[in-house]
Write a protein that binds this DNA or RNA. Structure first.
Lengths: 122, 122
DNA sequence: TTGATATTACGAAAAGCTTCGTAGATTTGA
DNA sequence: TCAAATCTACGAAGCTTTTCGTAATATCAA
């Protein structure tokens, strides 16, 4: 069950994870920055249904979709793959680059330090 | 010039980055775990030449390839994209998941702590 | 020299991703 | 009621990625 959603699928999953339940139109509206047609989103979500990435309730005319795959698990899959294929297996290298990109706020840095302390004491 | 190498291209780039200069056969031999034909690697590297990801010296019969795109820069591109599309922009979330995967050795953790200290004092 | 080996070039097939148009069904509201 | 709006299903086109076979050329060794 080691899913690897495509970029487009990830965009849709992000919406489903955030909202929990969604019609195609709701997803479409959340993504309108992408300037892609309604039926494109529909088709993608139907394909995701085939792949069992999502499930849907078809009791009403407007089908309601929800994610079948877990957000954290999916993030982990991506991360592990990235560490292998992009960072040659070095987690620390990835972490340092992530922290060095100047996009991390003081609050985030503190949270990470806290996390490291806890990791140490376990 | 914001390249996004494919998975196969990344495998080849890993070899080129590690070795510096390579014939197609050398790359092929480094990747034989993948059980893919010689001409497949050749074709991929020719495509990468088109895309200007690599350059080559054709003065001898056996062409010698080298990466044109930078390893760190490429890692950064992947990382930034991943933080956006997979982690909704939260660097700290990515970092904590990376550290929590139990693949990180004590040495790596110490290096990261050191790195955080230095980041603080600058 | 000449046959075996190594190399490149190139076309093309297969698979997957993204996109949209159109047809048909359902709902809604004037 | 019935026309407009909404929704699903589905096919298909265009693109990229991955794969390999074959032909042509170059090198090497006996």
């Amino acid at each position: 069950m080691n899913m690897k959603p495509t970029d487009s699928e990830m965009e849709i999953l992000q919406v489903l994870w955030k909202k929990g339940q969604c019609s195609v139109r709701e997803v479409y509206e959340c993504l309108d920055s992408k300037a892609v047609g309604y039926t494109t989103i529909l088709k993608l979500m139907q394909i995701m249904l085939d792949k069992k990435m999502v499930d849907r309730d078809t009791s009403a005319k407007t089908h309601i979709y929800k994610a079948l795959i877990n957000e954290e698990q999916t993030q982990h899959n991506f991360l592990d793959k990235m560490i292998d294929t992009v960072y040659n297996g070095s987690t620390s290298r990835l972490v340092m680059q992530a922290l060095g990109n100047n996009r991390t706020s003081k609050e985030e840095l503190n949270a990470i330090k806290q996390y490291l302390e806890n990791l140490e004491n376990s």
